[in-house]
């Protein structure tokens, strides 16, 4: 069974929710990413999302844009990310999903991407600029591999689109909390709970909420209505603020732990 499915099965038994941690691969460098991922796994992250840097990340706010730009300066690409995942798999069995814009994997070749991702130990792929209308080629490539294509839904998704995504969803559904780009927000929309419930009418696939979540209080609130909480920019910020300090890894770990506890409460 795919590690993502296994994780949700385990959490469901405990009536617990998933804490999903996003960081950009190669920010500020690949060896830091490796240490941070291991720390996140130990500090309560149930699923790790690794961002593949892209030159034109149009769904991302300034925090992840800057991280992506820095990672590209380090010449991080899919090949080096697969190598990283392979090495991580020696130590951790936490599910890993790659969050990537479409062009890098399209250019890499979707068949080759699937093969290499599988071999490295990747469990899911999340493509923010590939709506369900355009994902046929990727779906075909992933078929039979066990790698899950995580689909998005948004506050603006029509019932028709929710139904389509629900029919096809695997792993979990990524519900975007707000109309906007990634990045921590002080306030989140009221309708999250209602919209998550609306999606859950049509599917048994877990629904996780991401975008904008900036602190444990928000995380706790969302964990009450969703099956998981996705946190990204906050962790990137923690990396930015603490990189170079002696206890860098521990400091990032503490912030992750606090978010994780809020989700698991």
């Amino acid at each position: 069974m795919n590690r993502i499915d296994k994780t949700f099965k385990r959490l469901k038994k405990k009536r617990d929710k998933a804490f999903i941690a996003f960081i950009t691969a190669g920010y500020p460098n690949l060896s830091a990413t490796k240490s941070v991922v291991k720390e996140l796994a130990q500090r309560g992250a149930d699923i790790i999302e690794l961002g593949v840097p892209f030159s034109d990340p149009l769904a991302d706010g300034p925090t992840i844009q800057a991280a992506s730009e820095r990672a590209l300066k380090n010449r991080v690409n899919l090949k080096s990310i697969f190598r990283l995942v392979k090495e991580l798999r020696k130590d951790i069995q936490t599910p890993i999903a790659l969050m990537t814009y479409y062009n890098p994997i399209f250019r890499y070749g979707l068949e080759k991407f699937t093969k290499d991702a599988l071999r490295a130990g990747v469990d899911g792929v999340i493509v923010p600029d590939l709506p369900i209308d355009e994902d046929l080629a990727l779906r075909k490539a992933l078929r039979g591999s066990g790698i899950k294509e995580i689909l998005f839904l948004a506050p603006t998704s029509t019932t028709d689109r929710i139904k389509q995504a629900a029919r096809r969803a695997g792993g979990f559904i990524y519900y975007v909390s707000l109309t906007g780009v990634t990045g921590a927000r002080k306030k989140l929309p009221q309708e999250i709970a209602r919209n998550v419930r609306r999606i859950k009418q049509y599917t048994k696939t877990p629904v996780c909420v991401g975008f904008g979540i900036s602190g444990p209080k928000q995380a706790e609130k969302i964990a009450k209505v969703a099956d998981g909480v996705i946190v990204g920019s906050v962790l990137i910020k923690a990396i930015t603020e603490n990189f170079g300090k002696k206890d860098f890894i521990k400091r990032v770990g503490t912030i992750a732990r606090n978010m994780g506890r809020a989700v698991h409460r």
Binding site: P131, D133, T158
Partner: peptide, 12 residues
């Protein structure tokens, strides 16, 4: 061609 954009924009 096509529509390679985030889900949020699809209904628009």
């Amino acid at each position: 061609g096509g529509r390679y954009v985030p889900e949020t924009l699809m209904s628009a």
